[in-house]
Design a protein around this nucleic acid. Structure first.
Lengths: 201, 201
DNA sequence: AGTACTCACATGACAACGTCACACGAAATG
DNA sequence: CATTTCGTGTGACGTTGTCATGTGAGTACT
């Protein structure tokens, strides 16, 4: 039980969890290595045994975020709903990350730091699911163009909402409504949509 | 000529310009009050005579960014092209800011800091031009919904490009092509055989 | 004109931060 | 049991944002 490797792996996980919690609670400014160490029950220098520097620690948080989103998207894709509904649910899942963990979401969409290739690969895992879902509607031919358009649009909606530039008063709409518009405008989509998937936001 | 008020106003401008240059050149990390002071020819403590803190200095940079974009958009709107072309040019102008000043662009779309109301107001100046341009195509009725969708989509494209998640290899498209798709998909656009909603100029 | 005031700016100081070098002690190895 | 390994704690250093204080040139008052 007092295995050394296991103990080290446990503190590594504790460090990541502590960093994630601090990020969620107080934003990037609250994530100091001293605070992370304290919350993880170790000292301020301990992270350097597991990560080259602070940037790589945050990068790992981003990687985990993309991988977790990919899992959610996979579950949606394997669901039994219509292609339209599944695509809309996937887009809403993206909005959900933004709503639930805004600071992590912002980090996921900032320029990759630390180990960029690892981030790009993890993000690609989520993007591939989008590609597949869009392909089911518009066909393999146009899947990539429309996939890029839909993913960036959904991200734009989430980002605009997060930054406070999407006030309901000014635009008279909501992120959910905009996503619905996106899906319905897709060539090959059925106009009638009874979407019941997606989480609360 | 060595008027005290004028001199102070000049250093304020110099501070903002220095901060902007440092931001463009080295990203947010390069913008330290010491470096800003040095580049503006004053000391590290001088900014505190003009801004409450660093956050407010950066916020002013964001405000200026939005106002400058609004001017560009206004010039586009008053141009002689077709409504479609003008809207596309406006969206491309947004991409242009992202391409030319990526760090400032990222700041403009992050959660407002310092004096949020001032930022929201400046951003609104740009958003209103978008609203008008979109209204010229889809009509006043739907202008707000479509305006929000177009602006957030364009921002999403720019953001995805900036963060490196829009690789041409994966998606087989470019930001410009995506913007073109957006405009053509708009109901009332000339090239797409869509509904002929209100068309005014 | 000469004096007192004002205010923009410079400077010293402090706490907090990321990071490194080093020390310690317990697990792992023979 | 002796030795090595390695995860972690600790001291230290340079840098940062910020404030308190000093200073000197422009401004106002008599």
């Amino acid at each position: 039980m007092t295995n050394r490797a296991d103990s080290a792996a446990a503190t590594r996980v504790a460090l990541l969890r502590a960093a994630g919690d601090l990020l969620d609670a107080g934003g990037p400014a609250a994530v100091t290595l001293r605070a992370v160490g304290a919350q993880a029950g170790v000292s301020r220098g301990a992270p350097y045994g597991h990560f080259p520097d602070k940037e790589h620690l945050l990068a790992q948080l981003v990687v985990d975020g993309w991988l977790e989103l990919a899992q959610v998207l996979d579950r949606i894709r394997n669901g039994g709903e219509s292609a339209d509904a599944k695509l809309e649910a996937a887009l809403i899942a993206l909005l959900d990350v933004a709503a639930r963990k805004p600071h992590l979401y912002a980090l996921m969409w900032s320029a990759p730091t630390g180990d960029p290739s690892q981030i790009v690969e993890a993000a690609g895992r989520s993007q591939d699911v989008f590609l597949g879902l869009v392909g089911d509607i518009v066909g393999r031919e146009d899947a990539r163009r429309y996939g890029a358009l839909l993913m960036s649009s959904a991200h734009g909606i989430a980002s605009m909402e997060l930054s406070g530039h999407l006030s309901k008063q000014k635009w008279n709409t909501t992120p959910r409504a905009l996503v619905a518009m996106l899906v319905q405008a897709l060539p090959g989509a059925s106009s009638a949509g009874g979407v019941s998937a997606g989480d609360q936001t």
